[in-house]
Design a protein around this nucleic acid. Structure first.
Lengths: 307, 307
DNA sequence: TGTTAACAATGAACTTTTTTCATATTGCAT
DNA sequence: ATGCAATATGAAAAAAGTTCATTGTTAACA
């Protein structure tokens, strides 16, 4: 009899707008595309008209859809702050969050999430564990870090919980005139004789080595530097090939500074996980942090898939 | 994973506050007390504490409950206006609503609902069908009224839909010194020799006659007047007995101006229904009107039960 | 001090809604 | 045309939500 409208529907609408299409919205909400499609169909039957034009990207909303979206924008921020207040009521507002990363590039997307987090949890002390850490997960049991971004999910470490973050493609980066640049994809053999330009991390942390060169029994010469920009400068000037996350180099590719090539017939993919101290894993602020990271990455980084 | 909070929960909380206890809140929402109890239990498990103190009336909310209620107060008005906008988008905003009543007392509670309605649907022309109408339902097929408040549900009239409104107790009103005033309840025989003071409506519209005196084969002398105040003045000065809805005389009873007595061992109950033209029955504005009437009556009139 | 009445809680059965799964359809671009 | 990405759809499964029947609890009252 009375209204069937629920917050769920409003969250779907805003996710649709933010993500750009239903499938991506579903990913953002941890639901299936089908679920959202059914939801929208239901709303459309209630309000007697389409909510948005399916084809257009970004989605164009109809008057009905726009009115619902306007409502969402009014409501959801209040819901969010209320839930934040309630979480703080339940568990207190203080804590610490020392963050360690395996690879510097992560700061690109970590920073915005950290800024957002700082605003939401002003009384949680946030720090970056400085220095070079080949094994950031190891810092957690030593109580030198609370959260680490790592590329492998290793459930064997006791007292550490892993939260899946996202999956992304790793591509080979070549100079514009590189001989390999027009191959449809690169295989292990193509790396023979090339210099691999990387971040300064151990061999076994590199997905190209782990997944492609290692299994093929190959070793290549390596050269490393910390900054992505420096790394690409080396590639552009023909000193070698890099293998980097697509999201880290998208802007350089778009500008035509360097070119890229798929690694392996089906592409090479890496994943990232957030490792956190078991005793913090359930706290509201840690849960909120992980959520913020996933969300901001999904909306910011091109071509990634949430895990 | 993400939030489980839905508008449903917020509506429950505000209904609880408005209605004063869970059972009444359930009535307001057309749900069972059990449903709301389960809902609240769920919220309490999510937020880790009680939402309100069960015993106290009116309910005293805890910090958690109060925060949720604060959220409700922010959100629900927006939801309401959004749904109003959407309803108008779908069906247009104009229409007419000519209201007929069987009994004048109804204006007491009709007025506030009408005021509210006027604010919500400014382009619906609202009128009161004046004059004296022994059969208000009859005006609907004649297209002289769109909505009528009546005491009987008569599904045989074609083209007219009945919306149940509420049920209430009808009590006998006696002067403070009346001989019958200390009886635990009145039976048909007690009315012998008494004058029945009523609104000027035909015998068969009076619930006392229909349900008690008629079946007992009794007829009594009657005297009638339009205004409740005048009617009670007659009772107070010993000219006879009245049989009136408890809600209509509650304030006089509380002031001790007259006294009352249950009619029949289990009390005498009347009901009211909203009759409306079939072609308007499904329109958003008519649905909204019926809802407003039920809601405002429930919150305003003492001792009634929604149907 | 029982008795009753009103309100709330509870567990199980049941209903409805929501979600997924598997697959079809659609529109667009190559 | 063919393939691809996005969306739609129907049926099955899962998850909520609601009711029913009953039990606790409290307070008022004879």
């Amino acid at each position: 009899m009375s209204s069937l409208l629920e917050l769920r529907h409003l969250r779907t609408l805003t996710a649709l707008r933010d993500a750009g299409n239903l499938s991506r919205a579903a990913e953002l909400l941890n639901l299936t595309q089908s679920a959202l499609s059914h939801q929208i169909k239901l709303l459309e039957s209630i309000y007697g008209g389409a909510l948005y034009e399916r084809k257009s990207v970004p989605p164009r909303f109809t008057a009905i859809g726009a009115r619902l979206l306007e409502l969402s924008d009014r409501l959801l921020p209040h819901v969010d702050t209320a839930e934040l207040d309630l979480a703080r009521l339940a568990a207190g507002t203080a804590g610490q969050l020392r963050i360690a990363v395996e690879c510097h590039t992560c700061f690109d997307w970590l920073m915005p999430a950290m800024d957002e987090f700082r605003a939401r949890w002003p009384e949680v002390e946030m720090d970056i564990v400085s220095g070079f850490n080949p094994d950031p997960v190891g810092l957690i049991p030593q109580d030198r870090a609370d959260f680490a971004v790592v590329s492998r999910h290793d459930p064997s470490v006791p007292g550490v919980d892993f939260h899946p973050l996202f999956r992304f493609e790793i591509v080979a980066i070549l100079s514009r005139s590189h001989v390999l640049v027009d191959k449809p994809w690169l295989e292990a053999a193509d790396f023979a004789g090339q210099t691999l330009i990387t971040y300064p991390v151990p061999d076994e942390m590199l997905d190209v080595v782990r997944q492609l060169l290692g299994p093929a029994g190959m070793t290549v010469q390596r050269r490393s530097t910390e900054l992505t920009a420096a790394l690409l400068q080396l590639v552009a000037s023909g000193r070698g090939i890099a293998a980097l996350p697509l999201w880290a180099v998208k802007s350089y590719l778009d500008r035509g500074y360097v070119r890229h090539c798929t690694i392996g017939k089906d592409g090479l993919y890496g994943s990232l996980y957030g490792a956190c101290a078991g005793h913090l894993s359930g706290t509201p602020y840690m849960a909120d942090f992980v959520r913020l990271v996933r969300e901001s990455c999904f909306l910011t980084l091109p071509g990634i898939t949430l895990l």
